[in-house]
Design a protein around this nucleic acid. Sequence first.
DNA 1: AAGTGGTCTAGACCACGGA
DNA 2: CCGTGGTCTAGACCACTTA
Lengths: 240, 240
Amino acid sequence: MTAVGKFSTRPLYLQVKDMLIQRIAAGDWKPGAAIPNEIELSRELGISVGTVRKALDEMEHERLISRRQGRGTFVIDQTSTEHAVRFSNIRDPGAVRIGGDLVNCTIVAAAANQTEAQHLELRNGEPIFRIHRLRAHHGVPLMVEESIVPQALFPGLERETDDSPSIVVLARHYGVLLGRAEEKVGVAAAKGDVAKLLGVEENTPVLLLDRVVRTIDGRPIEWRLASCNLRQNYYLAEMN
Amino acid sequence: MTAVGKFSTRPLYLQVKDMLIQRIAAGDWKPGAAIPNEIELSRELGISVGTVRKALDEMEHERLISRRQGRGTFVIDQTSTEHAVRFSNIRDPGAVRIGGDLVNCTIVAAAANQTEAQHLELRNGEPIFRIHRLRAHHGVPLMVEESIVPQALFPGLERETDDSPSIVVLARHYGVLLGRAEEKVGVAAAKGDVAKLLGVEENTPVLLLDRVVRTIDGRPIEWRLASCNLRQNYYLAEMN
DNA sequence: AAGTGGTCTAGACCACGGA
DNA sequence: CCGTGGTCTAGACCACTTA
């Protein structure tokens, strides 16, 4: 018997899930690697296979693992082309999600102002990074964005030599698992720098994307404000 | 043993789900009513409780039923205030979904043009209804919309004395269960009638919503094109 | 107290993928 | 062929709601 126990009120399969998520986040199993099979996990934990299955089912639904009959269960690489753009609802004319390629990136350390603290559920003045990026698609400017992240989750980010192209890549680099996101969609007229960077005339209408990405535990990890010139691309929201 | 059998390749729990959905759509159990409990269903069908559970789990996830420990399993009323606006991503300042109240509604029978046929996966010229609506929120114009639906699914709709406020209400009235929807979000300048109906000046930027709602089987049932004046409301997309 | 869904067990067999 | 996840069974007990 390991960290899971039958004397908590929390259902066993959720404890199993928590434990597996924790081990993935800790790097016990790298992205792309196989997880022990169901029988083995159930023996290790001294519980039934069905209980392990229920934990794995939920994790698959949350895109943490992928299971295939006959092959096994694998940790999903969130930075793979398939998953890297899952928090972008912008599609190219062929309906595939695009996130834009990084053109330019500057990082500044600062203290959270009130809006920033509110969006990230921090206290006023807590340390954050402000990341400004310009993104292009097929060489054409797509969006300018300001991304706010708490310093606590990304220690030493400002000294990184590599660029930090997106929250998905950052999260993987710092061992954080991402969950859900909400995005407000609005419209505004491009002004000054924004217009210049996007290569459009002043007052061209652009899409305004105000997005909060959360970790698997539901804590906000990034607040991003983007101005986007869609051109022939479009924004697509799916509803269940 | 009823309509489910063990000699198909389709998993038993999916056959059970299909059958239950069919019975709900047929009106065997009205919205709000209780479904027989798991034990009873499993006895009726001659299968194990676990198999019934798996079917019910999926149906709950698809918002067809709601289950509560100690109470029972109930057919969800899609037209209840909670579920009626689930295909609208517009939120009021308090973050609650709003669909707008119906102000005005006209229905015209017609033959599908190419775009309409394409969106609804019909053949050119198949009979459709074009429904024009004006919606307001707290008495203030919110959106004008043109909704296209196939006549096949809504026989006699043009003779209805009741207004048809939304696809959700229509679907319930005609015994169709709704599944998912996709919505393209764009921006445009309000012109002519649209500007007049929304009570804004010409060329005011409005949100353009291009939405396809599908049945539980995945067939398109409504294509709606709406021009929306958000004012203090906003558009919120959720991503998993 | 009775009845419901929720959790958990311990098996069996099937369908699929790769060596 | 073997090992994997997917389906299905037949129970047990728990937690919650209602009367």
